[in-house]
Simulated assay, not measured.
Amino acid sequence: MNRPLDLDAVQAFVRVAELGSFTRAAEVMQATQAAVSLKLKRLEDRVGCRLLERTPRYVELSARGAAFLEHAREMLAAHDRALATFGEARQRLTIGISDHVAGPELSALIARMNAQDPQLVIEIRIASSGDLLQSFDRRELDTVIVRLHAGRSDGEVLTEEKLGWFAAPTWRHRAEEPLPVATMAEPCGVRALAARLLDSAGVPWREVFVGGGVPAVAAAVVAGLGVAALAPRMLPFGAVDVRSKLGLPALPKLPVLLHTRVKSGRPRDALTALSAAFRSAVRG
């Protein structure tokens, strides 16, 4: 046990553990899945125990792997701090993320990016997809991660996410009244989509809560004010999909798109990791 650990193998272990997938870890590391698997095997041979349990359907940490994970992160962070003493200039990455994409896992993802690359200054702006795309076009942002926006056909599809009509489990709709809906303020694309579908289906509706960001809309739903068109991961545990019960129109899967001018270097590495993490979060 006197030989030092291979940092590349340690990094591969951390990536697989965080993303829950050899395929996604390989994507982030810009390597093949076979190369990542080989690094993990060498690390496990070196420490003399299995760090990850693998099945055809999932990857999860073993007990030893869970105990080692935080030490592995600290090791990589120390390595980056050591390199930083040689005076490499800090780089800046400005990212805009749509309200309807930035879920509850965002803070943990950004904290992880900051810890892994202290030489990269990350700035985040949360807004509507339309506003962010305008800022991107004005070159005020390096990158935006947004929902599909009307009139735009560019961008890289990161993943697709299903939306539903959600309400509090104890909420009941009074049939004689218009459907009470909680929404984001204009120019929210999801709001426009939901309104168009309700109108096309002949469902009378009225807005009972508008604006404040997706967390505020989710809070209005849980408080029993009405229903909202949201992705399941945006809602606290306990909210229920009421589409079938109320006969509401089906909501389509909406793409999550990446628009970026970042092509290489540390910012691109961080962006690749963030994109893979979003795919994992959306797919669950």
Rank of each mutant, 00 (worst) to 15 (best):
V240W: 00
T23N: 08
L40C: 13
E60Q: 14
P56R: 14
P236S: 13
P4Y: 10
V242C: 12
A276D: 01
P215W: 01
R152L: 11
E176R: 08
P255W: 04
T143W: 07
L43W: 10
A273G: 03
R174V: 13
Y58Q: 15
H100I: 08
I95V: 15
L120G: 00
A175P: 02
R46I: 09
R73K: 08
A182S: 15
V208D: 02
R15Y: 10
A219T: 14
A78R: 15
L7W: 10
A63K: 10
V203N: 01
F166S: 15
E27R: 15
V121L: 12
P215H: 04
R81Q: 11
A12F: 05
E74Y: 06
C49M: 10
N2A: 06
R174F: 07
G211T: 14
A229F: 09
G48D: 05
P118L: 05
A218N: 00
M29Q: 00
R81C: 07
R233N: 03
P215V: 14
R125C: 12
S21A: 07
F86A: 10
I145D: 08
R64K: 07
A195L: 13
A108K: 05
A276G: 12
A220G: 10
R50V: 01
D137C: 07
P118H: 01
W205Y: 04
G20W: 07
M234Y: 01
D117E: 06
S129P: 11
L246Q: 06
L120M: 04
A277C: 03
V10F: 04
A195P: 01
D154G: 12
A12M: 03
L7K: 14
V203C: 03
S37Q: 12
D117N: 06
D99Q: 13
D45G: 06
G130E: 13
K263Q: 13
P4H: 10
M75F: 10
R73L: 09
T143M: 13
R206E: 01
R172P: 02
A273Q: 06
S200T: 14
A182Q: 08
A175H: 02
P249F: 01
W205T: 04
V146M: 07
A102R: 11
P252S: 01
R50H: 02
A223D: 14
L76A: 01
M184Y: 07
A281N: 10
L76D: 00
W205G: 01
T260Y: 02
F278S: 06
H259L: 05
R172A: 04
A67R: 04
E70A: 12
V16H: 11
R24T: 09
Q119N: 06
P56H: 14
R112H: 01
T85N: 03
G103H: 13
N114G: 03
V256K: 09
T94A: 14
M113G: 04
E27D: 09
